[in-house]
Design a protein around this nucleic acid. Structure first.
Lengths: 336, 336
DNA sequence: TTGTACGCGTTATCAG
DNA sequence: CTGATAACGCGTACAA
């Protein structure tokens, strides 16, 4: 286990100064062709790689951005992250991930941790933190972008979609199909802006028809299959069960499907079910899930290039909205 | 955007030397209670956080480990990663993720990238790299552990399970249920030791009964739903279709289910299907997937604490095998 | 185009 | 228990 080569070693092998080696590596155009070649040869010969700490200390950049997501357990954020990762990768920027379990306090803590690790930028999911946190980021000059989230007049840059409008559109479709007894299985709204917005959207749609979510017709549960199944069973064993269950995301909807199935109920004959997010899961269900498609990949890429631009120039990150679309598959039918 | 406080600032506010501040922060027990309190007060007052680069340069550690996985697209590695992450977190060690898309060249490249970023240790999936890569890691003294993988006499530390034996056990169960015309949808074996081992395991089982995978009865495809569906359709439209399709993982099995369904075939009445990995997906399928359960979380945790030990003491990482178990759900039935 | 020399913020050694 | 001070490896003014 011999010592690693340093810039100085390369310099002496190449017969140039350390400054020239550094330039040859970071700004090749500032160095004469022949010199650069000698340096490259020396680098290869010594198997030199720059020391991370040294570089960070001197340049005050880590070329790393942090991604803070609620959880990796379900696949909701996987595609988006992968897209972000790939985008950053092309620019030689790394990514480190932290998870919050949907807890804003944990989120703030993780952000602080990432800052201590010197990340140059941040991708955050939603706007669940205390505004003070975002202000702190601005004050420290750390570029960040909120994803999976967008609202008019959001004071922070967000690259996402209008959760509320999308949920409303889905609920309106349900209403258009004649459903009147509608129940909703939502995520836990407290501290979760997206869960909140989706519930609001459904309420909006009902209100526009002079209806509302009846008492007990909204439950908020963690995003797990079991919770979804359990909630659906409760709904469906009521005296007058709903004809449609709108769910806050696909995991809950899948759970609901399982719950209904376990009671011998048929979807959509006995009850319709809708999801949100359009993760892979949605297509393997039987029947396949009617849900709201979210452009995970495009969002991830957009977030990545926005951050890259912010890291490169002075350009501030600007918000962007993406359209969501209703994808009708098999779990939603006209009320029968 | 004012300048951040440095150790020196804290020192002068606290009226001590920088050395003492550093100790108070990193080895509190070496500092008198009263002094420590003054330092802590100064830290709080100045909102001081250590500079990452400075710390790395001086200590030559980043307190970060790298995790290199094939992909985040499907949920196979999510639970394990989350467990790893949590374990490391408790020790204040960060995690950075890189993906390889099942390409060993990319894997080697990502490893190099992570090393350049100064990771103190690595978690790798499987043994797909050129041995030279692992040797290089050993030479550089970077602790690493192979997960999702274990074989006798593996020269590198691995914390995983015996893919071959597990696949064999599953196939034997299929045989025990009377199946003789068996087909397999495997992952692409080239450069993927786990995919290879799973195929071998199935072959082992068949061979032990004097059978084999007939010509055209094994296809290797990427781990996607579509590929699984397509392969299943091909198998099932043959003159004498198989009575059971053994799949290299759950995603392929889910795809196979979709494929069969699309042909109007019933599982398991018309054909049995088995998976591997036991990801969440397996339980939402209808019928639920009979598959091989892999202890994702325990593996992730074990990998994490092994790496932590390696980072802390000189203790080398030692291998560990986990048991897999057959979980029989609804997609495998006796041949009928 | 290249070289010199210094600073970046911590940790660690060693003396007190 | 504390302080002075020398590394740590790289980037970059500034000078040549």
């Amino acid at each position: 286990m011999k010592k690693r080569a340093k810039l100085e070693d390369v310099a002496s092998v190449a017969g140039v100064s350390t400054a020239t080696v550094s330039r040859a590596l970071n700004n090749p155009q500032l160095v004469r062709e022949a010199t650069r070649r000698r340096v490259e040869a020396a680098v290869a010969q010594l198997d030199y790689t720059p020391h991370f700490g040294g570089r960070v200390l001197a340049s005050n950049r880590t070329d790393t951005v942090g991604a803070v997501i609620p959880t990796m357990e379900n696949a909701i954020f996987a595609r988006g992250l992968q897209a972000l990762q790939e985008t950053l990768d092309e620019a030689g920027v790394g990514m480190v991930i932290a998870t919050t379990d949907y807890d804003p306090a944990r989120e703030a803590a993780q952000i602080r941790l990432l800052l201590n690790r010197g990340v140059d930028g941040l991708m955050l999911v939603g706007e669940s933190c205390d505004p003070a946190v975002y202000r702190m980021l601005e004050r420290r000059g750390v570029p960040f972008v909120l994803v999976w989230w967008w609202r008019m007049d959001c004071p922070w840059p967000c690259i996402g979609f209008d959760n509320r409008a999308a949920a409303r559109a889905m609920a309106e479709r349900v209403l258009d199909l004649g459903h009147r007894r509608i129940a909703m299985i939502g995520g836990i709204a407290h501290d979760n802006d997206r869960a909140t917005a989706r519930i609001r959207g459904v309420r909006d749609a009902l209100a526009s028809r002079g209806l509302q979510l009846g008492p007990g017709k909204l439950v908020e549960v963690p995003y797990t299959l079991d919770a979804g199944a359990e909630a659906a069973r409760r709904f469906m064993s009521a005296a007058r069960p709903p004809t449609a269950i709108v769910c806050g995301n696909d995991v809950l909807a899948a759970g609901a499907l399982i719950g209904c199935r376990s009671m011998g109920l048929e979807v959509p004959a006995d009850v319709s079910v809708t999801g949100f997010d359009d993760i892979d899961l949605a297509t393997v269900l039987e029947p396949a899930l009617t849900t709201v498609h979210v452009p995970h990949v495009r969002m991830g890429r957009a977030a990545g290039s926005a951050l890259l631009r912010a890291l490169a120039g002075e350009e501030k990150v600007t918000s962007a909205v993406f359209e969501t679309t209703l994808v009708e598959r098999g779990t939603l039918a006209a009320v029968g």
